[in-house]
Each structure stands twice: as C-alpha cells, then as structure tokens.
C-alpha cells in the first residue's frame, strides 16, 4: 500500500456499494407529459421502459437527462418523492441540450441516469421550523422537499417558502403557488425583481424578505436553491439573523459529465458536487464560495 506522506492521514476509502453494470449507460424513458411553465421553462413527466424499476429518489436529488445524439445534462427532480413512478423534471432552456429537450414531444425517448447526489435534510428537520428559499429556477429542485414536508405537516414547526423571480411571468408553478398561499399552515412570501402587468406584491430581491421573515434562528433549518449570488446573500442574511451555517443547506450547480464521481468536473474544493452534493450545508462551502473561482 502507499506510504502516507508526512502529514497524510489515510482516510478510509468511500464505502463500496455493489458496482452497477455501467454507471454511464443511460436508460431510455418516454415523455409521458409535457407542460410549458413559461417563456423559457418547461416540465417533462417521464416514464420508464416496461419492467424497469427506477430507484426511489429523495428530495433534492437529480438525474442526468440525455437527448439522443445531442448531449446530457444534470436536472433536479421536481416531482413528488412519494410518487416515484413518474419522474418530473422542470428545465429552463439555456443552451444546446436544454433546447433539444424542449423540442421533445409526448412519446419521444429521453435517456435517464440516476437518481444521484445528496438530498435536502427533510428527515433531520423534523420537529423544527423549515424555511425554503428559492430564486427563479431554484424553486423546482426545492418542490420535492415541500411536497415531503406538506405530506407530513404535523412533524414540523413553522413552514415557510420565500420565493423570488425576475418578473411575475417568470414565476414557476403559479397555480401551485396560489394554492400554497391559501394554506393556513404554510407561509409564502413572494417577490419579483421587476413588476410587470398588474403585479401588486413585493418588488425587489429575495434578501430583504429573508431579513423580515418571522424566523426563529434556533428552531430553523433553511434550504436554499437559486443562482449562486442569491444563495450567498440569503445565507449571509440568515447568519446575521442567527441561523447557524450548519442548519443552512444550499444546492450547488457545477458542470457535470458523469454524476458518479469519475470525471472531476464538479469539484468545489474537497467536495465532488455530484457525490457529496448537490445539497451541502453552508458551513462546508462558505469559505470556498467567498473566495470565488473555486
């Protein structure tokens, strides 16, 4: 065996699971449902090939979605973890692969590998207040956590969703948002960067909402998903309010080619985001994100 260098602690190797056949082989699912959420965002419902058993997923996990001959990208699962039979993915069109994905029609095939990565700490958060903070396309990856919590509402203290989008038209899941806002045991605070149409709600970024929200720092577990800059501001604001960085969870986005710890693309310091993340507690990454370009 290797001799450790002078300061080298040989950490135990990561746990060895039964090697799968080939983690890079994709499985052709079918598009069973198709929904246009707004100008550049769409939701696909995918069903597995006959007889294929897709592993249950945890809120916050993602799949690698492959469009035939075009490419493969990581997309979070946005559906209900209690209904694992159908995979729901909500995607914003930003480039080649997501554009091709948007061109898919019902019945078309799409490759799926997954589910991968860590998850929102919904079980550890039982007995505590849950604060979900989402920016823009960051709401879909948080939705499974909200579904999970709402299905077991009695196990949690206060539950809060703070959501910011660019404009009212960019807001994800408006019908569901309306439903959630009407629930007496879920507090929803929404804001837009720029008001349009007959918007009468909050205007401005999500940080001031975090500042004003009725948060009890000792009871709170926060889960945050959105652009990295928004994540950092929200985390700083939570820290100022006394929420511990260990109780603050963020989902990070990095380039991913393999999603199984074998390609090196998703590194953030000592973390492989595909394997150790995408959900990480803020104390694990705070310094790295502050330094930047890590």
């Amino acid at each position: 065996m290797l001799q450790p260098p002078a300061d080298g602690r040989f950490a135990p190797p990561p746990a060895v699971a039964a090697p799968d056949l080939d983690p890079m082989r994709t499985v052709p699912f079918r598009v069973a449902g198709l929904h246009v959420d707004n100008e550049d965002t769409f939701t696909l419902e995918l069903t597995p090939p006959h007889g294929y058993q897709f592993a249950p997923f945890k809120p916050g996990q993602f799949n690698m979605l492959y469009v035939f001959g075009v490419g493969e990208v990581p997309i979070s699962i946005s559906g209900d973890p209690d209904r694992p039979g159908v995979l729901v993915h909500t995607t914003r069109e930003v480039g080649a692969v997501t554009r091709a994905m948007r061109g898919l029609r019902i019945g078309d095939a799409i490759g799926v590998r997954g589910p991968f990565g860590s998850s929102w700490p919904v079980e550890a958060a039982e007995g505590r207040d849950v604060v979900l903070i989402a920016g823009g396309i960051g709401l879909p990856p948080l939705r499974p956590a909200l579904y999970h919590v709402l299905a077991r509402r009695e196990r949690y203290g206060r539950v809060m969703l703070l959501y910011g989008a660019r404009t009212p038209e960019d807001m994800m899941f408006p019908d569901e948002l309306a439903k959630w806002r009407a629930m007496f045991d879920l507090e929803v605070h929404v804001t837009v960067d720029r008001a349009t149409g007959n918007w009468r709600g909050n205007v401005g970024v999500v940080t001031p909402i975090v500042k004003r929200a009725p948060i009890d720092p000792r009871r709170t577990v926060a889960m945050i998903c959105g652009p990295e800059i928004m994540i950092r501001f929200a985390c700083q604001e939570l820290a100022r309010r006394g929420v511990s960085p260990q109780d603050t969870y963020v989902s990070l986005e990095r380039n991913m080619k393999c999603a199984v710890g074998l390609c090196g693309h998703c590194q953030v310091g000592g973390h492989l985001v595909c394997r150790d993340g995408p959900v990480l507690s803020y104390d694990q990454v705070e310094r790295l994100l502050d330094v930047g370009e890590v």
Partner: peptide, 22 residues
C-alpha cells in the same frame, strides 16, 4: 505503481465503478 493505486481509488474505490478501467 503508487499512481496506479491512486487511480484505483478514483475509478474503483467509490460507490460507482468504471467498468472499463476495472
């Protein structure tokens, strides 16, 4: 020899194994 042992850990030491490398 040590480098090969390190790549063994990367490609075959985790939850997902690279079958070609293996």
């Amino acid at each position: 020899v040590a480098a090969i042992a390190i790549q063994d850990r990367v490609f075959t030491g985790g939850a997902h194994v690279d079958p070609d490398y293996q």
